[in-house]
């Protein structure tokens, strides 16, 4: 993606230094949460408010269905709080 041109400015090594866009995606913030959102598809009216208010864009709304990206969802619970029909509930994470 055009980074080669700046090769000489980038030091090669694997560690906390950033070489590729989206290096943060190695940081699975899903591990932070103690509760995860679960969607009751009957109740869900696809109003997309949960998609709108998720700080970390962990809710997908394509294809008229709500899907939570549990790799990164931090379990804040805003989606459950703001859902007008209470179709999302927060479920305690069990230690596996």
């Amino acid at each position: 993606m055009g980074l080669e041109k700046h090769e000489k400015f980038i030091m090669k090594a694997k560690s906390t230094l950033v070489f590729e866009p989206g290096w943060s995606e190695d940081n699975l913030t899903g591990a932070w949460r103690s509760e995860r959102p679960e969607v009751d598809e009957e109740k869900c009216t696809n109003c997309d408010i949960c998609w709108l208010v998720c700080p970390d864009a962990c809710i997908k709304r394509e294809g008229g269905k709500i899907e939570i990206n549990l790799k990164y969802c931090k379990g804040c619970g805003i989606c459950a709080e703001e859902c007008p029909v209470k179709a999302i509930i927060m479920v305690r994470e069990e230690s596996d």
């Binding site: 989206g22 943060s24 700080p55 619970g77």
Partner: peptide
């Protein structure tokens, strides 16, 4: 309206914002 909004996101996942951070929701 919500439906008009692009699904494209301009911030990668895995950012260090606290759970429930208002600022990153605004920035998004």
């Amino acid at each position: 309206k919500i439906k008009d909004l692009t699904d494209e996101e301009f911030l990668h996942y895995g950012s260090l914002s606290c759970a429930g951070c208002g600022a990153i929701l605004a920035f998004r």
